[in-house]
Design a protein around this nucleic acid. Structure first.
Length: 267
DNA sequence: ATGGTAGGTATCCTA
């Protein structure tokens, strides 16, 4: 069977309900991982998700900030809401699907403006959460596990992941210290970056464009902050990936666009 | 070099 998985920082699921429907129709993901749902669990729009065919849901949100969710057409098992000592509060979900596929949906803190962990607690939090995940995956001995790590990681690792590499070296999201931390996380389980498997550098690819640009498409000053990573064991099943750039031009858009990966899963 | 917009919430925080 084909498995289509999408990650999207939706920036308020309640405000973006019509766009969620549009995405469901256009890309028909089997599993939809959302970040920045910005809604308490008790007020999550379950009826909307149900109406789009997502009968299986795992939600973890709080008032106003952060919040993650997994909407699925397939049953989810071993659902967990890990907090890692408060570092990942309302920022992480994991579950198992299609038998042995283990999915992690992660929302890494943006990290504030100043790229200095001593002076900026938000940046420190960002680095600490990345290190916590690195330790978590590095400690695992089941190196053949079929892991998927998706989400808004709030870091653009490659020079081709930002509109101007040199200009962004001092801008949080593309500083060498963050990129190095992200690479360490990637190496902890030998993850592969699915989007770059299909479209390697130097092609420029972005998944986020600031709301502050006068014309996001014309200036095209984007960054690739949203990722779908797979463990080596999932590499043979990987078929395709993509970025739904046009979603940035939808009415009242999120500043992030959906990212897709498709797999052929044996029965 | 600067400031620009958006969402949720409550008069400001985060992104």
């Amino acid at each position: 069977m084909k498995l289509r998985i999408v990650t999207w920082n939706i920036n308020s699921i309640r405000l973006r309900a019509p766009l969620l429907a549009r995405l469901a129709e256009l890309w028909a993901p089997d599993v939809l991982c959302l970040q920045e749902t910005k809604v308490e669990d008790s007020r999550f729009p379950h009826a909307l998700a149900e109406s789009l065919g997502y009968r299986h849901r795992l939600v973890h949100g709080g008032k106003a900030y952060n919040g993650v969710a997994i909407l699925s057409r397939l049953p989810l098992a071993e659902c967990e809401r890990l907090s890692f000592g408060g570092l990942a509060d309302h920022r992480h979900l994991s579950c198992r699907l299609c038998g042995d596929i283990e999915l992690h949906n992660l929302y890494v803190p943006a990290g504030g403006d100043l790229p200095d962990p001593e002076q900026n607690p938000k940046f420190r939090h960002k680095l600490e959460l990345l290190d916590t995940f690195t330790a978590y995956f590095a400690a695992r001995e089941d190196v053949d596990a079929r892991l998927l790590l998706v989400g808004d990681l709030n870091i653009a690792p490659l020079a081709a992941d930002v509109w101007n590499h040199r200009a962004l070296l001092k801008v949080v999201s593309h500083t060498p210290v963050e990129v190095e931390r992200l690479m360490r996380l990637m190496q902890a389980f030998r993850f592969w970056d699915t989007v770059r498997l299909r479209r390697p550098p130097p092609e420029r690819l972005y998944t986020w464009w600031s709301y502050r640009a006068r014309d996001w498409a014309r200036s095209d000053r984007g960054r690739r902050l949203d990722h779908i990573w797979i463990a080596p064991a999932l590499l043979p099943a990987f078929k395709d990936s993509g970025i739904l750039r046009e979603a940035r031009g939808w009415p009242r858009p999120s500043d992030h666009v959906p990212v897709l990966a498709e797999f052929e899963i044996g029965d």
